[in-house]
Design a protein around this nucleic acid. Structure first.
Lengths: 359, 359
DNA sequence: CGACACACTGTGAGCGCTTACAATGACACC
DNA sequence: GGTGTCATTGTAAGCGCTCACAGTGTGTCG
C-alpha cells in the first residue's frame, strides 16, 4: 500500500497508490438506489416517495417519516435526468460569458455580476452554471449544451451584436436575459442594463462644468450597447463647435493604454478624457503618465463602472456607478419570470456620478 | 410597439416591449421535435435515427442522408436528459472551486487552471461546468447537484482538509480528481500536484546560497497540501542552529501584507522571506516598502507560482514555477480514466526555480 | 439451389421519475 | 345505515432516448 514512484513521460513523477478495497470500476454507479428501493424500505409505494420528496403534500405524518428514514438509510439521491425528463425542468440556468476567458478574470464587473446572480438564484434553489464561450467553437459547444435541455434558461453577458449565439438560443425558445441591450433584438429579448447613455451624459457634463474644453472619449467595443450608448451620451452633451475625439478600446486595460496613446498623438492638447470603463481608464492614466501629463492637473480622466480598480488607481477615479448588484438581481427576476411564462421585458437602471481624484 | 417606460420600484425605469408575435408562453418547449418526428420525416425508424446520431455505424448512406436532412428540417436537438437516463452519462464534468468567489478572481492560478481544463475537456467533447462553493451552504447545494447525476465526474480545486464535500463525493462513488494532495485521502482519491516540497527546498536553498541568514516564510493555509508541503520544504533546508520564522496567510495579497508586518514586528533583522504564493509576495513587498526596506537589497523575497503577478510586481519576483498547464492536462486525463473505470492514481509534477529581481 | 454470412432495419423493453386517476378507508352528516 | 367528503394511497402511463434482439433482403459459397 506504499506509494510507488514511477517515472512518467517528460520528467514527471507518478505515484500510483494501489488501494486494496475494490475501486468503483466501471459502472459501480449501478449500485445507486432508486425510488423503488426507498419505497420498499419505507414500506410505501413509489408514488408516495415522490410526493414526500416534492413538498410532502398529501402525505401522512408517519409515511413522511418512514420515507425520510428510508432515504437516509439507503443514501438515496434523486436522479435528475429522470426527473427532468418528465418535468422538462432542470432547475439550473447558464451564465454565458461571450468573452475570452481572460476578460472574466481581468474585469471585476463580471465578478460582481456573477456573485449577484449566484446569490439571487440560490434563493430559488437554482444552480448557476458558468460557461465561458470565448471562441467561436466554444460558442457552438455551449449552444449545443444549452439547447440540449440542460438548463431552463440563460443569462447572457457581454454578447456582441450579430453573434449567432443569441439568435440560436432564441430560435430554440430558450428563455434568455441579456446584460446590456441586445443590439438588434431589443424587442424580443429581455434585458437589464444601466442607463449608459445618461451616465455618459453625466460624466461629460461634469467634465465640461469643470472648465474642460477639449474632451476626448475612449469607447468600448461599438458592437455592444455599452459601447454605442456611452458614445451617444458623449455626443449628446457636446455642442456644435466642440471638437470630438473618439477612439475605441475593448474594455481591457491594455486597450485603454493604447487608445490614450493614439489620442495623444492625434491631439496633444486634450485636457479631459471620458473613458468608458475603469479598467481602460487605469490604462489611460498609465499612458498619460508616461507622456509626462499629470492627472487631473493636465488631463482630467473620467471612468465608468465604479469597480474596485476605481479605488486602487492613483489618483482614485472619478467615475459613473452602475448598480451591478441590482442588475444581477433584476436579471434573475426577469429570467425566472420568463421561464414561468411571462413575456419579455426590459429594465433600465439609473447611474450615478462618483467624484474622486482623477477629474 | 413602442417601448413603454414604466417607473419601477426604487427609482428604476422599466421598459416593457409588448411584442406582437406570440411569445413562447408557458411550455412552448413542447413544440420541441423528438426523435420520432425526425424518424417520421426521414421515413425511417427511431432506431435508425439513433444510430445515425451515434456514430452512424450500420446505417446505409441514403438513410444517413435522409436523417441528416430531417434533422435540419425539424431543427431537432437531442434531449440530453433522456439520453443520460439510459446511458448513465452526461458528458460534462464539474470544476468545483472550494473558495470564496473573490479568490477565483484574484488569483491568476485559477484562471490558468480553468483554461487548461476547459481546453483538455473540449478535445473529448465534454463540457466543463464551473461551480463556486465558497460558503458551507454553497457546498451543500453543489454536492447535491453533482451527486444528482448532472456530471460524470468532478475536478476539485483548492479543497481544505476535513471538508465534507470530498467525503460526500467519494461516498457517492463519483469520480473525483483534486488539484493538490487531498490531505487525509491520498490513498483513495486521484490527484495531481506540483512537487511543492521540493519547490520550497529549491527556493530556500537558493536564498541561503545567496548568503541570507535569517530566512522567514509566509505559508499558505495549513489545511491545504500546498501550505504544509511548502512549509516542510522550508524546514528541510534549514539546519539545526537556524532561526525559523513562520507566519501563515491565505494566499491573498492582503494576507501576505499582514503576514509580513507581523514578521517584521517579530524580527526586524529578517534578510529574506520565502512567500508561498506570488500574490502574497506582492503583498509582502508592499509591506516591506512601507517599512522602509528595499527589495532585494535589505530583504530578499522569493515567491511561488510564477503567475503573471510575478512579472508585474516591482521588482519582478524570483519564484518557483509549477506547470499549471500540465497539471490541468493530467487532471483531465486522470478524471477521464477514472470515469472509464481505472483505479485512482496520483501525478506529481516537478517545479523549477525562476530567478528574477526580488531575490 | 439451399445454406449461410452479412449489412441494414424495425421493434420493444426499459432507464427512474412525475402525475393524473382510481381506489381505499375514515369520518360526519342526515 | 346510506351517502358524500376528504385525505391518503397505489397504479399505470408515459417523458425521449438507447440498445439488444429479431427480422429482412442481398450476395456468396458449396
Amino acid at each position: 500500500m506504499t506509494p510507488v514512484k514511477v517515472s512518467l513521460r517528460s520528467g514527471a513523477v507518478k505515484v500510483v497508490t494501489d488501494n486494496k478495497q475494490v475501486p468503483n470500476h466501471s459502472r459501480s454507479h449501478r449500485a445507486r438506489p432508486t425510488m423503488d428501493d426507498v419505497a420498499a424500505v419505507a414500506g410505501v409505494s413509489r408514488g408516495t416517495v415522490s410526493r414526500a420528496l416534492n413538498g410532502g403534500h398529501n402525505v401522512s405524518g408517519p409515511a413522511l417519516e418512514a420515507v425520510q428514514r428510508a432515504i437516509r438509510k439507503t443514501g438515496y439521491v434523486v436522479n435528475q435526468h429522470a426527473r427532468s425528463l418528465v418535468t422538462q425542468r432542470s432547475d439550473s440556468v447558464a451564465f454565458i460569458l461571450s468573452e475570452p476567458q481572460d476578460r472574466l478574470f481581468e474585469d471585476p464587473n463580471f465578478n460582481v455580476l456573477l456573485r449577484g446572480c449566484t446569490r439571487a438564484l440560490a434563493d430559488h434553489d437554482i444552480t448557476l452554471l458558468l460557461t465561458i464561450a470565448g471562441t467561436e467553437e466554444d460558442r457552438k459547444r455551449v449552444g449545443r449544451y444549452v439547447t440540449a435541455g440542460h438548463v431552463d434558461g440563460a443569462l447572457l453577458v457581454s454578447d456582441h451584436a450579430g453573434s449567432p449565439l443569441l439568435r440560436e438560443l432564441k430560435g430554440r425558445g430558450l428563455p434568455v436575459v441579456t446584460c446590456g441591450r441586445p443590439l438588434g433584438h431589443e424587442r424580443e429579448i429581455s434585458y437589464v442594463a444601466a442607463d449608459d447613455r445618461d451616465g455618459a451624459r453625466q460624466m461629460v457634463s461634469y467634465l465640461r462644468s469643470r472648465g474642460h474644453r477639449t474632451i476626448a472619449t475612449i469607447t468600448g467595443p461599438l458592437d455592444t450597447s455599452g459601447g454605442v450608448d456611452r458614445l451617444a451620451g458623449y455626443h449628446d452633451v457636446l455642442g456644435e463647435g466642440d471638437r470630438r475625439l473618439v477612439v475605441s478600446g475593448d474594455y481591457t486595460q491594455a486597450s485603454g493604454e493604447a487608445a490614450m496613446e493614439r489620442l495623444l498623438a492625434q491631439a496633444p492638447d486634450i485636457d479631459a478624457v471620458f473613458v468608458c470603463s475603469d479598467l481602460m481608464a487605469a490604462g489611460a492614466i498609465a499612458a498619460l503618465r508616461r507622456a509626462g501629463k499629470r492627472v487631473p492637473e493636465d488631463v482630467a480622466v473620467g471612468g465608468f463602472d465604479d469597480s474596485k480598480v476605481a479605488l486602487s488607481s492613483t489618483p482614485p477615479l472619478t467615475t459613473i456607478r452602475h448598480p451591478l448588484g441590482r442588475i444581477s438581481g433584476e436579471m434573475v427576476r426577469l429570467l425566472l419570470g420568463h421561464i414561468a411564462g411571462e413575456p419579455p421585458a426590459a429594465v433600465i437602471l439609473p447611474t450615478e456620478l462618483v467624484v474622486r481624484g482623477s477629474a
